[in-house]
């Protein structure tokens, strides 16, 4: 079953930016990474799912509920962490969280306490007096304290120190193990690679890719390193070969597309060693962002 299903969603601003004809599907119990450069439309999509923005076209269903017309029901089941979270600074962290839980009609405070202990944050202090990182922690607790089935996180680790980032990613993994769905936008590829099952890439308001992390890496270029005994075959004329570097009996190059033509050509020589490596995720997304390779 899908936790989020978006079809043809369009929300354009007067300056022509926004999202257009976006299709997206996030399965329940998975971690979905939503990636794209600044201004690509990530936050616009998230805000449309939560009813902050009304779309001009398209449909969106969140946990089986029409997110456009029954936004309040959606928000009852969803936890949301904005990219730049702001809490009521005249209240303490605890009072902010109590307010949120009361509005949700939740009386159980066990999870709130457990999260506060885990993220090591003093909830008794006024938000005004908290550092950015601690405000971020309170906002994370606000998104998770009511134990929602879906958590939407917009740049969740900004403001957290590296140790806390790791603790947060562990928390995300545990939520997934508990059957919860996480939808997170991020710029940090290592964390996307570490926790996400599936990713969607948005560029200029349109989805340019949506697949599992593993498949995306496979579909894109591969880094090839080969060593030959004797003559090194010239593979530069093969389709998709770039960044050709030859040194003695070794060659390194990047290959886009199928491996078959390369292997056929290599077999004409004597291959001593061959390494085919997936590029780091950063490289995959750099290509999407720059429009170098298109997408699905």
């Amino acid at each position: 079953m899908l936790a989020i299903q978006v079809e043809g969603l369009t929300r354009l601003y007067r300056n022509g930016r926004g999202i257009r004809q976006v299709d997206l599907a996030a399965a329940q119990g998975s971690v979905y990474g939503f990636l794209g450069p600044n201004g690509a439309g990530k936050t616009t999509l998230i805000r449309t799912l939560l009813g902050f923005l009304k779309p001009q076209a398209g449909q969106a269903t969140v946990l089986g509920v029409d997110a456009i017309h029954r936004s309040r029901e959606v928000r009852q089941q969803v936890g949301y962490l904005p990219s730049d979270p702001a809490l009521y600074d005249f209240l303490s962290g605890r009072d902010n969280l109590e307010f949120a839980l009361r509005m949700r009609g939740t009386s159980d405070r066990t999870r709130l306490k457990a999260l506060a202990d885990r993220l090591d944050v003093d909830l008794g202090r006024r938000v005004k007096a908290l550092s950015r990182g601690n405000k971020q922690k309170v906002a994370i607790i606000a998104a998770l304290a009511h134990d929602p089935d879906l958590v939407i996180l917009d740049e969740p680790t900004s403001g957290l120190d590296p140790l806390m980032q790791e603790a947060f990613l562990d928390l995300i993994r545990e939520e997934r193990e508990r059957g919860k769905t996480i939808f997170m936008s991020s710029h940090i590829m290592s964390e996307v690679e570490a926790v996400c099952d599936r990713v969607g890439v948005i560029k200029d308001g349109q989805m340019v890719a949506q697949d599992s992390v593993m498949n995306l890496k496979k579909q894109r270029v591969k880094y090839i390193r080969a060593e030959f005994a004797g003559v090194v075959p010239d593979l530069r004329s093969l389709p998709g070969v770039t960044d050709w570097q030859a040194a003695g009996s070794q060659v390194r190059f990047t290959l886009a597309g199928s491996l078959d033509p390369m292997l056929t050509e290599m077999a004409k020589g004597q291959v001593v060693d061959l390494t085919v490596a997936d590029p780091p995720l950063e490289e995959v997304f750099r290509q999407f962002y720059e429009g170098a390779g298109g997408g699905r």
Partner: peptide
């Protein structure tokens, strides 16, 4: 202006 509206409207309130 202070973005607290995001926190408020993320709650199940009309």
């Amino acid at each position: 202006d202070r973005r607290t509206i995001d926190f408020l409207l993320s709650l199940p309130v009309g």
